[in-house]
Each structure stands twice: as structure tokens, then as C-alpha cells.
Design a protein around this nucleic acid. Structure first.
Lengths: 150, 150
DNA sequence: ATAATTGCAAACTGTTTGCACATCC
DNA sequence: GGATGTGCAAACAGTTTGCAATTAT
């Protein structure tokens, strides 16, 4: 068993959560993917591979993992949520390509510091924050048509 | 007619959009409110005041205004969109109180500069960005219980 | 006049839930 | 054994859409 799976096992035990077959399979999928994904990505995988995990369980597991901070929910799109593994993955921000939907991560201590200071200035107690830059990634910068037709 | 309404009028004419009764009423409501609002806020107002504007028209008008950059859509929540008037309202970021849902605005040139530089460093062409700080506003810092029950 | 806009109701999408059955500790 | 977790199907919330009727220019 991989290092990360045994971490999950003890983490689950410690929190009185059962490591059921669906949960193991979902965790394995997530850790192998190591990327941003949606609930529907998981559902698709479950159906295609006849894994025998229902949509309900997928959503419930994602909530659970989010609550226990094993994954994080990200609101990149207004129509559906994205998730990503947190384990060993330090805090970072995102650039989202409007063309290919790829997501790039970055981290900048100076910006973090300035943000905290900005919150303090207004006596706002920051719990978490996020920064998103939308635009075109290097690959997509030359192959785009603007559609203002609708 | 207020300055802003005549601006809208010429803007609509210039873009071959019809300034219909529903659109006028919605624009008036938005400009008087001058705040962040949801589609449902608008629907509730329309129903309560028997304004005679359908939910469909509200959603369609919000899309239109967003497309023409008279309002901006903000993704504060994963379940529904917020909007805000753009007119005369310079670019800014948000702090969102997890307790009372109030939204505070801030602006920081230094952070903007650093963000742009960060994008350039990755040859990412930034079209727009947003920063959200979630936490407790000053008013709410002392009246909160943590609920970890579910 | 006529092209754009509206209201209605039905459809759609992502997500949540109640309940009977199954499973993990 | 008994609490916990699952699958199913139905419910839900926010939003979008087709179409016939209405309205702005």
C-alpha cells in the first residue's frame, strides 16, 4: 500500500470513519490523478469502468473528504465545483485558461503577506482566501477567435 | 432622468438594444441598490411589488448586462451567482463574511502589480482576475459558534 | 412593419436526500 | 451486533430554453 493510502487509513481510523470499498477506490482514483477534477469526472470514471459506485456516494464522499480537509473544493466555474487533493500540496493560487480550461498553480509569499495586511487593516479575520487569474495560457494565446455573436 | 439612466439609454441605442419596460425597471432597481445582489433578489422584488417581470426576463437581462459589461458576475457562492453594477465603480476585490454574508470591497495596487508580474512570469495572458478573502468581519468576530456536527 | 423581446411552462444541470438494504469495525 | 455507509430514485435549486404572443424602433 502506498504511503498516501496508509496515511488515509490511519486518518480515517483516527476520526472513526469507515474506509469502505467505494471510499478506497475513490481515494485511489484521486491520488493517482493528482489534478483538479470535478464530481462528474469521477461519475464518468465509475460508469465507464463499471466500478459500482453510485453518483450519490461520490457526492457524499467528496463532501466528507472536503470537510476533513483531505481535498479542497475550488469554485473555478459557476456551474460546478472542482476539487483537488490537499495532501503534501502547499497552499497556492490558480491561473485558469479560458480556452483550454487547463489550470496552472502559483504561489507568491509577498502577495499573501499583503493580503493579510489588507484584512487586518479592516479588522477582518481572514480564514482563507483565493486568487484566480483568468486568461490565455501560453499554448492558447495564438489560436483564439473572439466570439461576440451571442 | 438620472445621469446613469441616460447613460444606459445611449449605451443601449448605440448597441442596437431595446430599452424595454422590464429592462428600465431592472436597471433602476440595480442602480438604486448599488450593492451586490443575486438573481433571486431581483425575482423576489418583482414578485412582491407585482412589477410584472418574469424570472426568465430577469435571467436574460442579467446575462445581457453582463455581456455588455454594465454589471459583473461574481462567484462568491458555489450555489448561485452574485452581480454588481460596474458603472463608475473601479476594479476591486472582495472580503466575504462567512457569518453575515456581507461583502466588503478593497483595492490594492501593489497586489495587482505583483499578480500581473506573476502571470507574465508564466507567459500567461491575464484577461481578468479576482481575489476573495473569506472570514469574519469585525462585527461578527465575537458572536460565532463553530459547528462541526455534520 | 418587423425584428427584438417577453412570459410561460417545461427542460436541464449539478447536487442533495429519504429510506430500505448492505457493510465494516 | 449495531452503527455507518450505500444505492436508488425522487427532490431540489438555480438557471436556461422553445415557442407563441407582445412591443420598441
Amino acid at each position: 500500500m502506498s504511503e498516501i493510502m496508509s496515511f488515509f487509513r490511519s486518518y480515517f481510523a483516527r476520526n472513526n470513519l469507515r474506509l469502505t470499498r467505494p471510499r478506497v477506490l475513490i481515494l485511489e482514483w484521486i491520488t493517482q490523478r493528482r489534478d483538479h477534477f470535478t464530481a462528474e469526472d469521477l461519475v464518468r470514471w465509475a460508469i465507464l469502468n463499471r466500478v459500482g459506485i453510485s453518483r450519490a456516494t461520490i457526492y457524499r464522499t467528496l463532501s466528507l473528504l472536503t470537510k476533513y480537509k483531505l481535498i479542497a473544493r475550488r469554485d473555478f466555474s459557476s456551474t460546478h465545483s472542482h476539487y483537488e487533493l490537499i495532501f503534501n500540496n502547499k497552499d497556492h493560487e490558480h491561473m485558469i485558461c479560458l480556452e483550454c480550461d487547463r489550470i496552472y498553480e502559483f504561489q507568491n509569499d509577498e502577495i499573501e503577506r499583503l493580503l493579510l495586511r489588507e484584512a487586518q487593516r479592516r479588522r477582518f479575520q481572514s480564514h482563507f482566501h483565493n486568487i484566480k487569474i483568468y486568461g490565455l495560457c501560453h499554448d492558447c494565446q495564438n489560436k483564439r477567435e473572439v466570439d461576440f455573436s451571442n
